[in-house]
């Protein structure tokens, strides 16, 4: 069976070994989560985003899911927890618990490659693969590629944008302003 979450086998930090020995129910849950999208960036699933850290099926049938917040104040987290529960209820899983796991802290490194491609297609520049500017040095600008015209001739407008996870850039070639999913 090819299940939708196969990609996370490589990309999720929770050990590869564990995924291979997952019982069929847990595998099925992972594949269902592929259909739960981020409420603020609907092209991304919660798996693309890397916020689902663990799925456990208990002996009594209870499903425990651990999610990690992207940002402490991210208002999407409550909605994501509810959407996960609703999706699983819809598929017949009644006893579902979604808990928040803070550590290790979420990082854009956990975003899947396919998630980054979806972001770009949606018009948001994905986080660069190699993080360089999470430090506290002032006036450092990350080179970000315009998701519309692929130009590298872009400029940071603001480190903060429409949601906590994004910054704002401007492209000097196609003149469009665009969001960048900033490194974290």
């Amino acid at each position: 069976m090819k299940w939708a979450g196969a990609g996370i086998k490589r990309e999720l930090q929770t050990s590869t070994n564990k995924l291979q020995t997952l019982n069929p129910t847990a595998q099925h849950i992972w594949s269902l989560l592929e259909a739960v999208s981020d409420p603020e960036i609907p092209v991304l699933s919660v798996l693309d985003l890397g916020v689902v850290r663990d799925v456990q099926v208990q002996d009594d049938g209870r499903i425990d899911i651990a999610i990690t917040p992207t940002y402490s104040g991210c208002p999407a987290m409550d909605v994501i927890a509810m959407d996960i529960r609703l999706k699983l209820i819809e598929k017949g899983y009644r006893n579902v618990q979604v808990r928040q796991q803070l550590s290790p802290a979420w990082t854009t490194d956990w975003m899947t490659e396919s998630g980054k491609q979806k972001l770009r297609a949606f018009g948001i520049a994905p986080p660069n693969p190699k993080q360089q500017f999470c430090a506290t040095d002032m006036f450092q600008e990350e080179t970000v590629q315009c998701p519309r015209c692929d130009s590298w001739h872009t400029e940071l407008i603001s480190q903060f944008a429409s949601t906590a996870c994004k910054s704002m850039y401007r492209c000097h070639d196609c003149k469009e302003a665009f969001d960048h999913f900033k490194c974290h």
């Binding site: 917040p69 940002y71 402490s72 803070l102 550590s103 290790p104 802290a105 979420w106 999470c134 430090a135 506290t136 040095d137 002032m138 006036f139 480190q159 903060f160 906590a164 974290h184």
Partner: peptide
């Protein structure tokens, strides 16, 4: 462990606050 986890989570956010406010001071 809980305070350590909250600090771990929050530190990255604070780094952005520090950069942004520091740049404005300059």
């Amino acid at each position: 462990a809980t305070l350590a986890a909250i600090a771990d989570k929050s530190l990255k956010e604070t780094a952005y606050h520090l950069r942004w406010s520091g740049e404005w001071v300059i």
